[in-house]
Design a protein around this nucleic acid. Sequence first.
DNA 1: CCGGAATGATTTGATTGTCGAAAGACCTTT
DNA 2: AAAGGTCTTTCGACAATCAAATCATTCCGG
Lengths: 167, 167
Amino acid sequence: MAGGAVERTERGRDALIALRRILRATEIGGRRLARETGLTSSQLTVLRLLADGETTPGAISAGIGLTQATVTALIDRLAARGLVIRRRGESDRRRVWIDLTEEGQALLASMPSDLQATFHTEFAKLASWEQAMMVATLERLVGMLNAGQLEAGPVLEFGDLSPSERE
Amino acid sequence: MAGGAVERTERGRDALIALRRILRATEIGGRRLARETGLTSSQLTVLRLLADGETTPGAISAGIGLTQATVTALIDRLAARGLVIRRRGESDRRRVWIDLTEEGQALLASMPSDLQATFHTEFAKLASWEQAMMVATLERLVGMLNAGQLEAGPVLEFGDLSPSERE
DNA sequence: CCGGAATGATTTGATTGTCGAAAGACCTTT
DNA sequence: AAAGGTCTTTCGACAATCAAATCATTCCGG
């Protein structure tokens, strides 16, 4: 009684279409924002990842699904603009720690991210229960999508180590 | 009691974090799938757009937020692999209609799209009311995001013309 | 302690994506 | 038929991206 097979598929289709629209809208917005900033989409992604704390090329690579070679090239460009800085690990000198410079932090901060701005504006217009529903649904969706691909998950593996242990 | 300013912002933050996770997961999934298929992410996007029916480079360009020059290059590569075909408009010979070949359709059909597969599987597990809620929420979100950027909308402007009018 | 396997990052070489500006082809209007 | 507009492509330049090879370092078995 909870709906026959037909109804399910139809709903699934509708949901998927909506999801695709969301993805396309944000993709376009991201590209446009990136270009306005003088960066590229990928560079922006890396910067945002770094905002969560210092990491290594390997972790970045795993976190955003690009090869290490690509990440190295991206960091080259970001470093050339003074937005990030490389620092060799001290206990393990194979590792390289990438960190935002103050300039990089400032750039990120000065960038409302379009998506973020639009979202917040519109989100604030919702009734309280709608907000709650949306958060719940989105988090549910995160779980659904991550179920299919195990990775894309743990980016900060060293987050709970004390600073002295990090290198 | 519908929540003060603090609660709102907190919820907004949570929602945005979830949204970002969704975007990242799908982005990574898309890249991986594209690579497995021997295509690129952008090429795949164009193919999927074409699955909704024949269009022109201009419409594709507007639909996915890339310049016409880029779209031309993408179509060049897709055509070289025999996945799409170009056809000049007959009434207006400036236009070029791009269409999937049978090979292109077959490729798309043989590709569960990972995202699509995962989503359908997980979606089917939800209770009926949860499905309904998710569709409603996602469509609401589409509206919210499109509010910020007018474009990214009408892709198929000729969908309701009869075939004979299409060229 | 030594030497090979493992690990993390970079380099190299090649293809593709991407843009802006200019050119080409075609339509429309006057 | 000339002028101006629209749609697509071409061109030149730079960035993204990968796989494979290389470099530097650590780790481990003996």
